[in-house]
Amino acid sequence: ESETFDVELTKNVQGLGITIAGYIGDKKLEPSGIFVKSITKSSAVEHDGRIQIGDQIIAVDGTNLQGFTNQQAVEVLRHTGQTVLLTLMRRG
Rank of each mutant, 00 (worst) to 15 (best):
E1S: 12
E1Y: 15
E1Q: 07
E1C: 10
E1N: 14
S2E: 15
S2K: 14
S2A: 12
S2P: 07
S2W: 10
E3K: 15
E3P: 08
E3N: 13
E3R: 10
T4A: 06
T4E: 07
T4F: 12
T4W: 06
T4P: 06
F5W: 07
F5S: 02
F5G: 02
F5R: 01
F5D: 02
D6M: 09
D6K: 15
D6S: 14
D6A: 11
D6L: 09
D6Q: 11
D6H: 12
D6W: 02
V7L: 04
V7P: 01
E8S: 12
E8D: 06
E8L: 12
E8I: 12
E8H: 14
L9Q: 05
L9N: 02
L9V: 13
L9F: 09
L9T: 01
L9S: 02
L9E: 02
T10W: 02
T10A: 08
T10R: 14
T10Q: 10
K11I: 04
K11T: 07
K11Q: 09
K11P: 06
K11M: 05
K11H: 06
N12I: 03
N12W: 05
N12R: 08
N12A: 09
V13P: 15
V13Y: 12
V13T: 15
V13C: 15
V13L: 14
Q14Y: 11
Q14P: 07
Q14D: 14
G15L: 04
G15E: 09
G15R: 08
L16S: 06
L16N: 03
L16M: 08
L16R: 04
L16G: 04
L16P: 03
L16H: 04
G17T: 05
G17Y: 00
G17H: 04
G17F: 03
G17R: 03
G17P: 09
G17Q: 02
G17S: 03
I18P: 03
I18F: 15
I18Y: 04
I18A: 03
I18R: 01
T19A: 08
T19P: 04
T19G: 11
I20M: 07
I20W: 09
I20D: 05
I20H: 02
I20R: 03
A21E: 15
A21G: 14
A21C: 12
A21S: 12
A21N: 09
A21Y: 10
G22W: 12
G22A: 11
G22Q: 15
G22Y: 15
G22N: 15
G22C: 14
G22I: 06
G22K: 10
Y23S: 13
Y23V: 14
Y23G: 15
Y23T: 12
Y23D: 15
Y23E: 11
I24C: 14
I24T: 14
I24N: 14
I24G: 15
G25Y: 09
G25S: 13
G25W: 08
D26K: 12
D26C: 12
D26G: 11
D26N: 14
D26S: 11
K27F: 09
K27P: 14
K27R: 11
K27I: 08
K28L: 10
K28W: 11
K28R: 10
K28Y: 11
L29T: 14
L29S: 14
L29A: 15
L29C: 12
L29F: 09
L29M: 15
E30L: 05
S32N: 06
G33H: 09
I34P: 05
I34Q: 05
I34W: 08
I34S: 03
I34M: 07
I34R: 03
F35Q: 07
F35V: 07
F35L: 07
F35H: 07
F35S: 04
V36K: 00
V36F: 05
V36A: 01
K37R: 09
K37H: 08
K37A: 09
K37I: 04
S38N: 11
S38M: 05
S38G: 15
S38A: 14
I39T: 03
I39N: 01
I39S: 02
T40G: 10
T40V: 11
T40Q: 14
T40D: 11
K41F: 03
K41S: 11
K41E: 10
K41V: 05
K41N: 10
K41P: 14
K41D: 08
K41C: 05
S42R: 13
S42Q: 11
S43E: 05
S43V: 11
S43L: 08
S43T: 08
S43M: 07
A44F: 08
A44R: 07
A44Y: 08
A44H: 04
A44E: 10
A44N: 07
A44G: 06
A44K: 07
V45W: 06
V45R: 07
V45P: 06
V45E: 08
E46M: 08
E46F: 12
E46T: 06
E46C: 07
E46H: 13
E46V: 05
E46K: 06
H47T: 14
H47V: 15
H47P: 07
H47K: 12
H47M: 11
H47C: 13
H47G: 10
H47Q: 13
D48A: 10
D48G: 08
D48S: 08
D48F: 03
D48M: 07
D48L: 05
D48C: 10
D48T: 06
G49V: 02
G49P: 05
G49H: 06
R50I: 07
R50Q: 07
R50G: 04
R50D: 04
I51T: 01
I51C: 00
I51K: 01
I51N: 03
I51H: 00
Q52T: 05
Q52E: 12
Q52N: 08
Q52A: 08
I53N: 04
I53P: 12
G54H: 08
G54Y: 01
G54S: 02
G54N: 05
G54C: 03
G54F: 01
D55Y: 01
D55A: 03
D55S: 00
D55F: 00
Q56L: 04
Q56P: 01
I57P: 00
I57A: 01
I57G: 04
I58K: 06
I58S: 01
I58T: 06
I58D: 04
A59Y: 02
A59L: 01
A59C: 07
A59H: 04
V60M: 04
D61V: 00
D61H: 03
D61C: 02
D61N: 12
D61L: 01
D61W: 00
G62L: 03
G62Q: 07
G62M: 00
G62E: 04
T63Q: 14
T63M: 11
T63S: 07
T63Y: 09
T63V: 13
T63D: 06
N64Y: 10
N64R: 10
N64S: 14
N64T: 11
L65N: 00
L65M: 12
L65C: 07
L65P: 02
L65K: 01
L65E: 02
Q66H: 11
Q66P: 00
Q66D: 13
G67S: 10
G67Y: 05
F68Q: 07
F68I: 09
T69G: 06
T69S: 12
T69C: 05
T69Y: 03
T69Q: 03
N70H: 14
N70E: 15
N70W: 12
N70C: 15
Q71E: 13
Q71G: 10
Q71F: 07
Q71D: 11
Q71V: 09
Q71Y: 07
Q71I: 06
Q72I: 03
Q72W: 02
Q72A: 11
Q72V: 04
Q72L: 06
Q72R: 09
A73Q: 06
A73C: 10
A73D: 01
A73M: 06
A73T: 05
A73Y: 03
A73L: 03
A73S: 07
V74W: 11
V74C: 13
V74P: 03
E75L: 02
E75T: 09
E75K: 10
E75H: 09
E75W: 03
V76A: 11
V76T: 10
V76I: 12
V76G: 02
V76D: 00
V76S: 08
L77S: 01
L77R: 02
L77V: 06
L77T: 03
L77Q: 02
L77M: 10
R78L: 05
R78E: 11
R78T: 09
R78H: 08
R78F: 06
R78A: 10
H79R: 11
H79T: 15
H79Q: 05
H79L: 06
H79Y: 06
T80F: 01
T80L: 00
T80I: 02
T80K: 04
T80R: 03
T80V: 05
G81W: 06
G81S: 09
G81Q: 07
G81Y: 03
G81C: 02
Q82W: 02
T83I: 07
T83F: 05
T83M: 05
T83E: 08
T83P: 02
T83D: 08
V84C: 07
V84W: 00
V84T: 10
V84Y: 04
V84D: 00
V84N: 03
L85V: 13
L85N: 13
L85W: 10
L86V: 05
L86I: 07
L86F: 08
L86W: 00
L86T: 03
L86N: 00
T87G: 04
T87A: 01
L88N: 01
L88Q: 04
M89I: 11
M89H: 13
M89N: 12
R90G: 01
R90Q: 03
R90F: 01
R90E: 00
R90S: 01
R90W: 01
R90K: 05
R91P: 13
R91S: 10
R91I: 08
R91L: 07
R91T: 11
R91V: 05
G92I: 12
G92S: 13
G92R: 13
G92T: 14
G92D: 11
